[in-house]
Design a protein around this nucleic acid. Structure first.
Length: 498
DNA sequence: TATGCCGGGGG
DNA sequence: CCCCCGGCATA
């Protein structure tokens, strides 16, 4: 998973935990900031983040600064990382906010915090022009667009930590939920997510902050085409990893949440790389120092010999993991499966990597979490006539495995978020309905009953008898009224499919 | 032999 | 379309 480092995030070796800074309250707040002068943006609320901000942003001082804890900062940054990618799909009418813009603009009561934050910049910001360096492009992420604000550290009531994490998880999940993918709904993904947010969280987070937070999303919020936030690697991976609570390997995102500056144990096949995020620069180096040096010298135009770093480099590279094993394995599994296979379609990490871009992804199968059909034993008559396959309508059908995106789909829209009090919220996908087989997880997988390939293994038109106990066996002749309709009609049982 | 289910037919 | 059943294939 790709996770950008935060400004001010300690390097390897430094303690990142609270108190680890030995009294020096770690300045927090990495914010964002799209250099955006469009006044029309004011007032547009990015409600999705409203609650998150309420909880992540702990305090807002009179001068407009806000404080977070380290963990919150990570979360915030995470979201910004997501947002940034959204930005990449947007062509701002004013031409200001464009690809590569590192973050959004934060508004407080209609005023851009950006302006105020800049007055409090702790880190001396160097002006590249003064140093005679070049800017990669006018649109490239500008170093000044990020700021570090020194804040007292002990402001966070620790009791809220889990809620915040939960909030983060839910928010991120909502932003990538398949619900958002439905093109038929006129509601934007952001709004949907916001709605979910408010519904699920507003109760418990009534109003600890009276501030009128809003995120400006007027331009970047929703792509006109229903291209979902799924294209966002960062968000997606975050979601996926959070869904999979028993994921053996610690993903980058959890890693993120718990602020481990150094990847802990990894599988042998995992290779940690550092990728330059500078626009049009795909440089991938194996060491953080290397990538920092690269950024410093190549992009920031600083003296390569100098070890001085104000942390800006951190903002321009991301840590990625490259799993060679999974990569090859996943690709080899791309071969179509036999149409007679009645089990769950193969689920594998769909690792796509175009030549210059490495993205390690963990694709967690929702199938493992969906209830088996026998447990969702809802009696529906005329199930016999019902159509079995479930397809995700909004998934682009033309390129199931497009080179750029990872194909992930959920089997059923209803997603229930269980707001557990634990530090990590579990998110389960619950499928409802009879005989909804573990269905297509990727568009490439076949629809089980698709008419095209009924491809019988052998001659006859009769399909082999299933293994599962059918209604007749389960209920017996005496309870024939409990049978599914198909069984009653001596048709292929639709309740207990194999 | 019991079961699963296709094909066909009646209403 | 709903419902039923003859009859075949299979375990």
């Amino acid at each position: 998973m790709t996770s950008k480092r935060l400004i001010g995030q300690p390097r390897a070796g430094e303690s990142t935990h609270e108190g680890g800074c030995a009294g020096q309250r770690e300045p927090v707040i990495a914010m964002l900031i799209a250099a955006r002068d469009n006044g029309a943006l004011h007032g547009k609320a990015f409600k999705m983040n409203e609650v998150a901000l309420k909880n992540s942003v702990k305090e807002i001082s009179a001068n407009g600064l806000f404080y977070t804890s380290t963990r919150e900062r990570h979360y915030i940054h995470k979201k910004f990382a997501c947002g940034r990618e959204e930005d990449e799909n947007i062509t701002a009418p004013d031409g200001v906010l464009k690809k590569g813009c590192p973050a959004h603009c934060l508004f407080l009561n209609g005023h851009r915090l950006h302006d105020q934050i800049h007055m409090e910049v702790r880190t001396p910001v160097r002006v590249p022009e003064e140093l005679g360096c070049h800017l990669p492009s006018p649109e490239a992420p500008h170093p000044y667009t990020s700021s570090i604000i020194p804040v007292p550290h002990d402001r966070r009531p620790s009791g809220h930590a889990d809620k915040e994490v939960m909030a983060a998880t839910v928010l991120t999940t909502l932003s990538t939920s398949p619900l958002v993918l439905n093109p038929s709904s006129g509601i934007s993904g952001v709004e949907l997510a916001a709605k979910g947010w408010k519904e699920s969280l507003s109760a418990s987070y009534s109003s600890s902050t009276s501030g009128n937070w809003s995120w400006d999303t007027s331009d970047q919020s929703v792509p006109s085409t229903p291209s979902p936030p799924l294209t966002n690697d960062a968000c997606k991976n975050f979601l996926l990893s959070s869904q999979n609570d028993d994921n053996i390997e610690e993903t980058e995102s959890t890693h993120f949440l718990f602020e481990d500056p150094i990847p802990r144990k990894r599988k042998n096949s995992m290779k940690v790389m550092f990728k330059c995020l500078w626009k049009n620069c795909e440089k991938v180096l194996s060491t953080s120092s290397g990538i920092q040096r690269h950024i410093r010298t190549v992009h920031l135009g600083r003296n390569g010999d100098s070890d001085y770093s104000d942390g800006e480099e951190d903002f321009y590279y991301s840590e990625i993991e490259v799993n060679m094993d999974t990569l090859s394995e996943g690709l080899s599994n791309l071969t179509p499966t036999s149409p007679t296979t009645s089990g769950p379609p193969p689920v594998f990490p769909v690792l796509i990597c175009d030549a210059s871009r490495f993205e390690r992804t963990h694709v967690i199968t929702p199938l493992s979490q969906s209830a088996p059909s026998a447990l969702c034993h809802i009696h529906t008559d005329h199930a016999y006539q019902a159509t079995t396959p479930v397809s995700i309508p909004s998934m682009p059908s033309e390129t199931p495995h497009s080179a750029e995106r990872i194909s992930v789909s959920w089997q059923s829209p209803p997603v229930i978020f269980e707001a557990l009090p634990g530090p990590m919220t579990q998110i389960r996908t619950v499928s409802i309905g009879e005989k909804r087989q573990p269905v297509n997880n990727t568009p490439v997988s076949k629809t089980h009953t698709s008419g095209s390939s009924t491809a019988k293994p052998s001659n006859g038109s009769r399909k082999p008898r299933g293994e599962a106990k059918k209604c007749r066996k389960v209920y017996g002749m005496e309870k024939r009224d409990l049978w599914c309709t198909a069984c009653r009609w001596k048709k292929a049982c639709q309740r207990f499919t194999d």
